[in-house]
């Protein structure tokens, strides 16, 4: 292997100030985070940042040479866009390095009101083609797009060659099997929409029912899975549930599994991707520290042209299982 000529950026989750510090101490180049409200797609209870915490986080990050990316990636409520507009204004005021946006109207607002504020296109915008990405770039001067988790490595390589802006891909963590930002499964079951309310399979609608040796997980009253004694359990994210089709019970959409790209990271780097994102703003800081450390060492080793070290992250992944997901064609 030869050493890399260009740097790659490790983009790491920060659900809380403690996780932000853990990620940066473990070697994150950037952290991404959200305000504590429905303007971001990880609007989970007890998570995220108020304005003071963001200001302190920006100070800490910049003091350590890291960047802060603020996700404002839900879709503003019709007739009430104020919270979203204020989030964009505050992001500019608090000097975050970029905001991550999905809604066309909000892109438009940010581009007009804060032309110097760097815009990243959220995965929630589901821009899966060069045409879509170029459209956002031309209309709003989007500088980077986070690719939906639907493309193969080959498709990503072709895309990188075909667009004038930076590409960011997910390399680890929770895995959406549907095109992000275009999935209403959770709202169909719970009435709370990831796009509007910022949470998929919200905890307020989750129940674990102990039944003898089994535990049954429910979402909005629908049984999503049951786990036998000793079987690793999962959060009842709808698309990781067990369902019956044609008399056969199966993980129809996806097994409870985590995305892991250690094995194909060199290919993704070679494909021309700039930034590598770790999912998990809703996970604890122990998780963040472990995963960021592992990927920092891996990316650095690849950068030096060395064989990357081997890590075992089974213990912190959902269901103890991992997949390269859509990056490999046979996933489809």
């Amino acid at each position: 292997m030869t050493a890399l000529s260009r740097p790659v950026e490790l983009v790491c989750p920060a659900g809380t100030p403690a996780a932000l510090r853990a990620a940066i101490d473990a070697g994150a180049d950037s952290v991404y985070l959200g305000f504590r409200d429905e303007t971001n797609a990880r609007n989970f209870p007890g998570l995220n940042f108020n304005r003071e915490e963001l200001a302190a986080g920006v100070d800490y990050a910049h003091g350590h040479g890291a960047k802060v990316l603020l996700a404002i990636n839900t879709f503003p409520r019709a007739g009430q866009p104020e919270a979203w507009h204020k989030a964009v204004d505050d992001a500019a005021r608090l000097k975050v390095d970029a905001i991550i946006v999905a809604d066309l109207g909000l892109c438009d607002y940010a581009a007009r009101k804060h032309p110097d504020l760097r815009l990243h296109l959220s995965v929630q915008a589901s821009a899966s083609s060069a045409e879509a990405i170029r459209f956002y770039h031309r209309a709003f001067n989007i500088r980077r797009a986070v690719l939906p988790r639907v493309l193969t490595v080959q498709e990503i390589a072709a895309l990188c060659a075909d667009v004038p802006i930076e590409m960011e891909v997910f390399i680890f963590g929770g895995l959406c099997v549907m095109a992000e930002g275009r999935c209403a499964l959770s709202s169909y079951a719970t009435g709370k929409s990831p796009n509007m309310n910022g949470a998929c399979s919200p905890a307020s609608h989750v129940r674990y029912i102990e039944k003898g040796d089994k535990v049954e997980s429910q979402l909005g009253g629908f049984t999503i899975n049951t786990f036998g004694a000793g079987e690793p359990a999962g959060y009842p994210t709808l698309c990781k549930g067990r369902f019956e089709t044609n008399g056969r019970l199966s993980y129809l959409f996806e097994e409870p599994t985590s995305l892991n790209t250690f094995a194909i990271l060199p290919d993704l780097i070679a494909a021309g991707v700039t930034a590598f994102k770790i999912e998990g703003r809703q996970r604890g800081r122990a998780y963040v520290a472990n995963v960021v450390t592992a990927f920092r060492q891996t990316v650095d080793a690849i950068g030096r042209g060395e064989a990357p070290p081997v890590f075992d992250l089974d213990g912190i992944t959902e269901g103890g299982r991992q997949t390269a997901g859509a990056y490999e064609r046979n996933w489809r």
């Binding site: 307020s204 674990y208 102990e210 359990a233 912190i316 992944t317 103890g320």
Partner: peptide, 20 residues
């Protein structure tokens, strides 16, 4: 020091009632 999701996934913690 421990990831709550990991602890739950491994079934060493049990949550009942209002998960939120």
């Amino acid at each position: 020091r421990l990831d709550g999701d990991a602890a739950f996934f491994s079934r060493q913690l049990v949550i009942e009632g209002d998960t939120e």
